[in-house]
């Protein structure tokens, strides 16, 4: 298995992108987007996570097994969120007596 190493320039660019995204998250926090504030913050966070995983954690150049492990982790996060939201979003479908 050959070890692929990215150039310093690539790492610097990724680092700059991460800093820019952090600044972006902070800036968006001062703008009232209503319910979309959370959506935008999470989208930026996902982009940052992908940059870290693909470049800093070398997933881009990893074996298929390593990629499977990463996808497995994401899938499990999805299970946590999906089934929890399955509760939270449907809680009020049945009316509460007296209300």
């Amino acid at each position: 298995m050959s070890e692929h190493i990215d150039s310093v320039k690539t790492y610097a660019l990724v680092f700059a992108a991460l800093i820019a995204a952090t600044v972006g998250t902070t800036a968006v926090a001062f703008v009232d987007l209503g319910p979309f504030s959370v959506v935008v913050a999470l989208l930026i966070a996902v982009c940052k996570m992908l940059l870290v995983a693909l470049f800093f954690m070398h997933v881009r150049h990893s074996t298929r097994l390593t990629r499977l492990v990463v996808l497995g982790g994401l899938l499990w996060l999805l299970i946590l969120i999906a089934l929890t939201m399955g509760d939270i979003l449907t809680r009020n479908w049945v009316g509460v007596p007296g209300r």
Partner: peptide
């Protein structure tokens, strides 16, 4: 207070 639908699943 879990939703009854989630509970069913």
């Amino acid at each position: 207070t879990q939703s009854v639908y989630a509970a069913l699943v």
